[in-house]
């Protein structure tokens, strides 16, 4: 049962990820990226972490994708669909992607980690929110604070850049 659902979600995720790259219209690409994110949220639920799934929907699908589409909508789409995606020859791109792909595959299969994946340990509590909060504020306090400062800096930077003109 679980495996059937996994195969369903995973195949839709891969198909829509291909759509992101292959579709010509940028808005259609964005739509299939959204579909891909939703499938990944579904996979998180299969992995017994509903919190992560909700956050995935909230942050990626609900906020980041909306901003993507927001920006894309402002562009001149008609022109973009007529233009060729890559200037120059296709073959150079093909060579590069084959080299990159084979390097990644070689790394993956030569890695000793692949053959010794630890068996999954079923957690009793299915990752409750309070446990996550406890872990963030005790065990991982420093990384958590560093991430918040990085986000704050990004926020200030964004506001500064939008006001660059009028000093």
């Amino acid at each position: 049962m679980e495996q059937a659902f996994f195969l369903l979600f995973a195949s839709i995720a891969v198909a829509s990820a291909c759509g992101v790259v292959l579709l010509k219209n940028p808005v259609h690409s964005a739509v299939s990226l959204m579909a891909c994110f939703i499938q990944i949220a579904a996979l998180y639920i299969l992995l017994h972490s509903p919190f992560l799934a909700a956050v995935q929907l909230f942050v990626y699908v609900g906020a980041i994708m909306v901003l993507f589409i927001f920006v894309i909508m402002m562009l001149e789409i008609r022109q973009a669909t007529l233009e060729r995606f890559l200037p120059g020859s296709k073959y150079i791109a093909l060579v590069f992607s084959v080299v990159l792909g084979s390097a990644m595959l070689w790394l993956l299969f030569s890695s000793p980690l692949l053959s010794q994946i630890p068996p999954p340990t079923p957690s009793a509590s299915q990752g409750s929110v309070s446990e996550l909060g406890q872990a963030l504020f005790t065990q991982y306090l420093l990384p958590f604070e560093v991430v918040s400062i990085v986000l704050l800096v990004a926020l200030v930077g964004a506001i500064f850049m939008t006001h660059k003109g009028d000093g």
């Binding site: 919190f51 929907l57 929110v129």
Partner: peptide, 21 residues
């Protein structure tokens, strides 16, 4: 679900796509 509230807020946020499209 134990994250019911978060789920509701997240899903309600998807409403925006109908509007955009």
């Amino acid at each position: 679900m134990n994250v019911g509230l978060l789920y509701i807020l997240a899903v309600a946020g998807l409403e925006i796509y109908g509007v955009i499209f």
